[in-house]
């Protein structure tokens, strides 16, 4: 069977998106960067189609980047290969539940 691809769209990113169905915990996928370089990545957790995995270890509170930009912060430590989604990624915008928020302008 052809190995599933995890696509890293920007060199600054620490997550990659898997466009394959039924990727399971422990499965080895091919991490592919923008230039087409590949390396193996062992997935931690079951990852649905179109969802993300960490490319590096990310500490709790660390920035999570896709498209070369921050898409949130790690709500707990995330290991390389681990499934990244709402359970371990916190959005920093539109958060009326947080007391104060830095302006962006």
């Amino acid at each position: 069977m052809e190995q599933a691809i995890a696509l890293q769209v920007n060199d600054l990113d620490n997550v990659a998106t898997i466009f394959a169905k039924g990727v399971c915990d422990g499965q080895v996928v091919t991490l592919k960067d923008k230039a087409g370089h590949t390396r193996p990545l062992t997935v931690i957790g079951d990852v649905p189609y179109g969802h993300k995995v960490a490319v590096d270890d990310i500490p709790a509170g660390g920035s999570i980047r896709k498209y070369g930009e921050q898409i949130g912060v790690a709500s707990r430590a995330i290991r390389r290969g681990e499934y990244v989604h709402v359970h371990n990624l916190d959005s920093m915008r539109g958060r009326g539940d947080l007391p104060e928020q830095e302006g962006t302008s």
Binding site: T17, P48, Y49, G50, H51, K52, K66, Y67, E69, Q70, I71, G72, V84, H85, V86, L89, D90, S91, M92, R93, G94
Partner: peptide, 15 residues
């Protein structure tokens, strides 16, 4: 969106 893999408004926006 979340079921489709988008984890935050930031990720949705950038796309």
């Amino acid at each position: 969106n979340i079921e489709g893999g988008l984890s935050s408004i930031e990720e949705k926006s950038l796309g």
